[in-house]
Computed example of a mutant assay.
Amino acid sequence: MKKILRSLLVGFSALVALSTLAACSSGTTNEATSTTSEVPTTSPATPPAFPQSARYVADMTSADGKTMTIGISVDGGEVAAYACNGTDDEAWFFGTQTDGKIDLKSRFRDTLSAELAGTDVEGDLTMNGVAYQFTAAPVSGEAGMYTAVLDGVRASWVVREDGTAIGVQLNGISGRDFEQAELQQLSDLQFRNEVRNKRQLQQAQQITRLANGAMSSKINGKDVTPTLVTGTFRLS
């Protein structure tokens, strides 16, 4: 009887030991599986966003010393930009911005590529084959781009934050008219020589601020009231 009882106790102890071992083994496996399945995730970076309405201005100098001034206006997704040297060259750019980036081409094949960098806009401008780099700071008040038209002549300006302005007047385009198919066949160099540089450009009259806050200037001796250019502005 004692032998039978002893055998039962040994068997019961062995069963308890096996159950405990299995439980521990199962717990370790579950913990390891749970640990390895917790893979950290990284949230995608949020692209920079322009303010709903903003204006930017910058002066720049090319590698060979040529100077240019640019104004950029953004309203929502719409963008308008104007660059000029104040004497005999200018370019208008129109389009949209996406995720804080701008990539535009003017009707005369000038290019503007820029993006929001903090509160500034950093970019590259190519005009008449000359490359410029710029960092345009945000401006307020009367600073920005302005334009006026009288008798088919257009004058345009960039007004800086300090109130100084630079502008160019477009009197027309000389040379022969090209069909659209012909224009597409011209190389960039041919296009600059045969079309772009045939524009009749001159320094615009100075733009001033009147006592009532309006801007004033002259085109060919006649008074005009320049209007502020917003991101939705487009040339007619």
Rank of each mutant, 00 (worst) to 15 (best):
L5K: 09
R6G: 08
S7C: 05
L9H: 11
A14K: 04
L15Y: 15
A17V: 09
L18G: 09
T20F: 14
G27I: 05
A32S: 09
T33P: 06
T35S: 10
T41S: 12
A45P: 04
V57S: 03
A58P: 05
D59Q: 11
S62T: 04
M68L: 13
G71I: 10
S73A: 15
G76K: 13
A80D: 05
C84M: 00
T87H: 12
F93D: 02
T98C: 03
L104W: 01
L104I: 00
K105H: 05
S106C: 04
F108Q: 02
R109S: 00
R109Q: 03
R109H: 02
D110A: 00
T111E: 03
S113P: 03
G118A: 09
L125D: 01
L125Q: 07
N128A: 12
G129C: 07
A131E: 04
T135M: 07
A136M: 05
G141P: 01
E142F: 06
T147H: 08
A148I: 05
L150P: 10
R154V: 15
V158P: 01
R160M: 08
E161V: 06
I166G: 05
L170H: 08
N171C: 04
G172Q: 12
G172V: 13
S174R: 02
S174K: 01
E182C: 11
L189D: 09
Q190Y: 07
F191S: 05
Q202W: 10
L210C: 09
S216P: 10
T232K: 14
R234F: 04
L235F: 12
S236R: 08
